[in-house]
Design a protein around this nucleic acid. Sequence first.
DNA 1: TCGCAATTTTGATATAAATCAATCACTCTT
DNA 2: AAGAGTGATTGATTTATATCAAAATTGCGA
Lengths: 246, 246
Amino acid sequence: MKATAPITLTGLKKACSQCNLFELCLPFGINDSDILRLDELVATQRRIKRQQPLYRTGDTFEAIYAIRTGSFKSDVLLEDGREQVTGFQMTGEILGLDGIGTGVHTCNAIALEDSEVCVISYTKLEELARVIEGLQHQFHKVMSREIVRDHGVMMLLGSMRAEERLAAFLLNMSQRFTARGFSPTEFNLRMTREEIGSYLGLKLETVSRAFSHFQEEGLISVQQKHICILNSNGLRKLIQHQASVR
Amino acid sequence: MKATAPITLTGLKKACSQCNLFELCLPFGINDSDILRLDELVATQRRIKRQQPLYRTGDTFEAIYAIRTGSFKSDVLLEDGREQVTGFQMTGEILGLDGIGTGVHTCNAIALEDSEVCVISYTKLEELARVIEGLQHQFHKVMSREIVRDHGVMMLLGSMRAEERLAAFLLNMSQRFTARGFSPTEFNLRMTREEIGSYLGLKLETVSRAFSHFQEEGLISVQQKHICILNSNGLRKLIQHQASVR
DNA sequence: TCGCAATTTTGATATAAATCAATCACTCTT
DNA sequence: AAGAGTGATTGATTTATATCAAAATTGCGA
């Protein structure tokens, strides 16, 4: 089954100029006159159903994608079947940067729920970036932040223990929900315990136990995917003061 | 002690056009006429003594750096003193990309031996990239490859066991030495067991034991920092077929 | 050239997280 | 509304790696 339905968005030009996500997204920092020119860049959208791939490892790279609605995970698969989730992406975030280096995607991007993305032709993006300074700079920023984010994950995986990792994960989710105008303290996770575990380098049982323990400590309340953060400072302290193990 | 001696390279213009590293570096894929214009971009060099920082977390970002001689580690420090080495960099590789996103460096870059770097003003780079398509594209490739590399490290840290991680590390070092014209099978590591451990999310004792075990198995021979790879396929198999643990 | 400090190796033990296993709670389908 | 299937929780046990400790090796600096 070809998972990708390349639904062209007919009516909607003005992709960026009317998008309320632009301050989280690629157009950020670009002035009003230039932003109109982005609308030509983002001519198409695509809808991806839950569990379906936006792209897969090995797909030729042609475009990057901005998430308009929904969310995704990115993962890398090893030959022997092991999966490493390398990130979770939310609205306004950019997917596909991994493909620029080799011209081929090096990971899978899977929708965690029914989602819509803006398709940004990479060729056109490079052209426009040469003309619109702000776009060039913002694009570089997006890539650089991705690198910095990855370093944070390495820190997590290389130097933190299980509960610290989960605390960091929850605080990060909270912060990103906040940036999107949602509650900092109450949200629904879109991914399974197993996906969280893969991302954090833990088994799903360990993730589950850590959730339960946080609840016992009064730091959060959990009901399946629904999370309430009751004591975010408590979570922060957990990260800072825990004795080094690794 | 201010560790950075900003020695301006007076005589040497022609930084890129005469550099034998260019095929590993930023100028790769740029045609001869354009490459002369890069020489103005790389007007200065800096020498960094062993153990000294090229830049530190919090330093304002102004330039990226291409390693001309020597090697570096990048690391992130947590408040409580924990260190995560996020990468080791060799000649021709680019340092400093982490700073673009925020305008401030988010990690430390420390010389593992006496080294020299080419200083590439970021402002000038952006200007030139708008004019030289090849430079723009190559720069994007460099950033993208850094992201892909980071994903590989996440895979390593999140899904592999100790000996797999070290095997992957050795194969990666071998491959990079080869690309620089050195022996694929015999090389000197520039970093300590502790630094390798930090990078791989392991304690130095575990790294040392894994080295010893590889030697017992006849996969490599080790004398302190000097490594001979005796059976690289053996190392590769170790990564592929080891039972999943995490 | 010597001596000391740093690094590495090796051994014994402790422990965090994995594994194995069973039950429980949802959600989706018919 | 019932049942199946997926996902989550919880418990018992195992295991890989950390920790603690000591000895061996190296190489730097006086």
